[in-house]
């Protein structure tokens, strides 16, 4: 019981983190029609920035805030210097160019921080277990991630549904020409949206940093997961990304937690411990394949043109 609740919360926490990453990706995808493989690199940069700034300032929170600002700036610089020239190009060009950016970022990190990973230690007040149900404790930090991510999701939802900028963003996602006809400064809007996406990716990275090691290539596996999520959810749909992210987070976490024991019922111990992680990773891709076969445009297609 204890384990189930804990793993359930872990799944929720991982799902919310994935949502932060997927939200930026799906916005950029839906609005600028840009396939950005380097989104995972921004996630990695967020983690590295946080580890570095926290070490400098000696404060976890200050480090996190500075890292958030730094990824925002990095995203804006990246958009203005390189990615903006890719708008309107073939998706294949996007894949190739941003694939190049991944190589670049990984190598730059290796050059600056070295090949070994970094650790981002948590302050003491975030490591205490918090009682959530009678007799059940959950780490404060993971709880904090859940709360922060839910808040961001709420803000994002309100921002997109209730504000003028949000209206423009929605208009842009479903009708690219219209937004131009409205006389909006599209260039600026695009840069801001990209910066926002970068900051969200950075936030995901820096929040994940204390849980995993901060290392080169950390953005790549999770990027593919984020892509799976936006494809399942329907490209350009924040709501779809949210639901799909929670779903994928749950499957991944619960699969890893419970599949080994399940498999041990039918397989030998060694075979089960090799097969289980593979099988739970596979589950997600299987899910995506099923969704796409049944609904080739995802569960909540936003671009109904």
């Amino acid at each position: 019981m204890l384990l189930v609740v804990e793993q359930f919360l872990n799944g929720l926490q991982f799902g919310l983190l994935l949502f932060l990453l997927a939200a930026g990706l799906t916005l950029v995808f839906g609005i600028m029609d840009l396939v950005n493989l380097a989104h995972g690199s921004l996630y990695m940069m967020g983690a590295y920035f946080a580890a570095t700034f926290a070490a400098w300032t000696g404060s976890f929170l200050a480090g996190a805030l500075m890292a958030l600002g730094a990824t925002l700036v990095l995203g804006i610089v990246l958009e203005m210097s390189a990615l903006r020239h890719l708008y309107g190009r073939d998706h294949l060009d996007h894949v190739l160019a941003t694939f190049g950016l991944i190589l670049f970022f990984n190598e730059a990190v290796r050059l600056i921080w070295g090949p070994a990973g970094l650790a981002l230690p948590l302050p003491a007040w975030l490591t205490v277990p918090v009682p959530i149900l009678p007799g059940i404790h959950y780490p404060a930090y993971r709880l904090a991630i859940i709360i922060v991510a839910l808040l961001v999701a709420l803000l994002l939802y309100l921002g997109v549904m209730r504000t003028r900028i949000g209206m423009l963003i929605r208009a842009g996602a479903s009708n690219r020409e219209m937004i131009g006809a409205l006389g909006i400064n599209i260039k600026l809007l695009y840069t801001l949206v990209f910066g926002l996406g970068a900051a969200l990716a950075g936030l995901a990275g820096l929040m994940q940093a204390p849980i995993l090691t901060v290392q080169i290539g950390m953005g790549e596996n999770i990027l593919i997961l984020a892509f799976v999520i936006i494809v399942i959810g329907g490209i350009g749909s924040i709501r779809g990304a949210f639901l799909a992210a929670i779903f994928v987070g749950m499957i991944d976490t619960l699969g890893r937690a419970f599949l080994p024991n399940l498999l041990r019922q039918v397989l030998s111990g060694a075979a089960a411990s090799t097969a289980a992680p593979a099988l739970s990773s596979m589950l997600i891709y299987l899910l995506m394949a099923i969704v796409l076969v049944v609904r080739p445009e995802g569960l909540f297609p936003a671009n109904r043109r």
Binding site: V35, P277, A278, M288, L292, P296, G298
Partner: peptide, 24 residues
């Protein structure tokens, strides 16, 4: 059954599946 970016992603997903099958 899919096209465009969805095709790119689904072929990627299947390859990742193959990758994990091999790892298992």
């Amino acid at each position: 059954r899919t096209r465009g970016v969805y095709f790119i992603m689904i072929t990627l997903a299947f390859a990742q599946m193959a990758y994990y099958v091999a790892s298992g």
